[in-house]
Structures are given as C-alpha cells and as structure tokens.
Deep mutational scan, measured.
Amino acid sequence: TSSHKLRLYERDDYRGLMSELTDDCACVPELFRLPEIYSLHVLEGCWVLYEMPNYRGRQYLLRPGDYRRYHDWGGADAKVGSLRRVTDL
C-alpha cells in the first residue's frame, strides 16, 4: 500500500498553526478549525485538493513538494474545502 502525508499551514511560508493529514478529509475547515490554508507541504503520495467541502468545486492535483503560497498549487484563493488521496494514477 502507498502512504500519504501532507501538512497544512494557516499562513504562507509554513507559518502559523500546522496540521498533518494522512487520510481523506471531506471538510478541512471543520476538522482543523482553519477557515483558510495558505501553504502546504506534501511529504508522501499525491493528493487532490478541492476548493469546497465534500470533494466539490475546483480540483488541484498536488504532487510531493512545497506549496509556499496558494497560487503555487494554482488556487485563486486560500480556500481548501476537502482533500482526497490519489490511490490510482
């Protein structure tokens, strides 16, 4: 099985509160109590970021690497509604 891990930060450049995720999350704002995510670091696996909860809205593919600001993943703003692991490519 492949492993997945990413870290979410409330501010750009990996500042502020950090939360780690290793499984799908249908509602990021509810789980982490963060209305917006300004940076993230994908440590393992690929993920799909959705701008709205319950895997809706615009989708962004996140490969392992650094995303210091939301425009690094192509986002128009810092809204992160849900995240899902990519298990098949």
Rank of each mutant, 00 (worst) to 15 (best):
P29D: 13
G81D: 00
L89G: 13
Y9E: 02
Y67F: 07
A76K: 09
L43I: 15
V28D: 02
G16N: 06
R68S: 07
R58V: 04
L89Q: 15
G65C: 05
G74Y: 03
L17C: 12
M18P: 01
R33G: 10
L31A: 11
T1S: 15
D66K: 15
G75N: 04
D24G: 02
R33I: 05
P53T: 08
D77V: 11
R68P: 13
H4W: 11
Y70A: 08
K5R: 10
L62Q: 03
L34T: 09
G75P: 00
C25N: 00
D72V: 07
T1Y: 13
E44D: 06
R63G: 15
D88H: 15
T22A: 13
G65E: 03
W47V: 01
R85W: 01
Y70D: 01
A26R: 12
Y70N: 13
R85C: 09
R85L: 03
T22E: 14
S2A: 08
E30W: 06
R11Y: 10
S2V: 12
W47R: 04
L61W: 14
G16S: 04
L62V: 13
L6Y: 00
E20G: 01
H4R: 02
A76L: 14
V86N: 04
S3C: 12
S2E: 10
R11P: 04
H41E: 11
W73E: 05
V42M: 04
K79F: 15
S2Q: 08
A78D: 02
D24H: 01
D13H: 13
L17V: 11
L49S: 01
Y14C: 05
C46F: 10
G65W: 00
H71R: 11
S19N: 15
Q59D: 06
R63E: 13
Y14N: 05
N54H: 09
R15K: 15
A78S: 07
P35W: 09
A76D: 08
D23M: 06
G57D: 01
Y67M: 04
V42I: 06
S3M: 07
T22R: 08
D12N: 13
V86G: 03
T87H: 10
Q59K: 12
S19V: 14
D23T: 13
